[in-house]
């Protein structure tokens, strides 16, 4: 049993008061390791909330530097950070919020050559990436490494998310099979995104991560939560694990391969 210091007890008091979290839950949070892939629109709120929540170790992955056009939604970065690697900018903010959290940075993009090694070391992964090849790659890696993760996608005013427990609940490929052809689907940079929508979805992902770590509530297993911020309609679409899934089904995948990169160019 971890003995929390008075500082920690006070910092996490609003968690500890929750009957479902309590000392035991906060202890689990403090002992957990979460990997956040992408330090952008989704990664920003996720990283901030997880650091604030006291997650023991957070890995953050991104190869980009902060750009002026990021600041409309990537709330972990500030104007003064323009030109700074996103992972370093994010680390500074997370440590400022909570010095108890250890932050590990990966200043690179993930690919088949490195993803498995990194993902393996974590209890939970957050997909905060902005392209399909990355999203499917993360799905493959998490299924192979048997690490649960939260999928997240946003576009214009909408968002979708599901939580995947490998080999137990449906995976991303169970629902979407494989990446759409290049240029078939618009992404944020080509179609636009309401900044707050990134925050809405990212905080849902952070909550899912904490639910999983503590072992409380019902994670978004076997269902896709979608919402449209214009109407503020939220929907859950339920489904089951696909036994014939290309990735997690009977045969399944045995090794990691890169998907063809999708070029971000809007057709619409």
């Amino acid at each position: 049993m971890k003995e929390f210091s008075d500082e920690e007890l006070e910092r996490y008091s609003r968690h500890i008061i929750l009957q479902d979290v309590g000392i035991e839950g906060q202890e689990k949070i403090s002992n957990s390791k979460v990997l956040v892939i992408g330090a952008g629109g989704l990664g920003s709120p996720v990283a901030l909330y997880l650091a604030a929540a006291g997650v023991g170790e957070i890995g953050i992955v991104d190869g980009d530097v902060v750009d002026l056009s990021n600041l409309q939604r990537q709330v972990i970065h500030a104007t003064a950070d323009i030109g700074v690697p996103k992972v370093l900018s994010a680390k500074a903010k997370m440590e400022a919020i909570n010095p108890n959290t250890k932050v590990t940075v990966y200043q690179k993009f993930l690919d088949a050559s490195n993803i498995l090694e990194i993902v393996k070391g974590y209890d939970f992964v957050i997909d905060g990436t902005d392209n399909f090849s990355a999203k499917f790659l993360i799905n493959d890696a998490c299924i192979l490494a048997n690490v649960p993760y939260s999928h997240g996608g946003i576009l214009r005013f909408g968002g979708q998310t599901m939580t995947i427990k490998p080999h137990e609940s449906a995976c991303y490929a169970c629902v979407f099979d494989s990446p759409p052809p290049a240029n078939a689907i618009p992404t944020c940079s080509s179609a636009g995104i309401l900044g707050a929508v990134a925050g809405m979805l990212g905080t849902i992902q952070a909550a899912e991560a904490l639910k999983y770590i503590v072992g409380m509530g019902e994670p978004l297993y076997n269902r896709l939560l979608t919402f449209d911020a214009k109407t503020m309609n939220f929907r859950n679409v339920n489904f089951k694990k696909n036994p014939k899934c290309r990735v997690c089904g009977g045969e399944g995948i045995k090794e990691i391969k890169d998907y063809e990169a999708v070029v971000c160019e809007a057709k619409l």
Partner: peptide
């Protein structure tokens, strides 16, 4: 309040 409750929970956890 609520630190007294938080600390109570800490003691109970032990």
């Amino acid at each position: 309040c609520p630190m007294n409750f938080v600390k109570t929970k800490m003691e109970l956890s032990k």
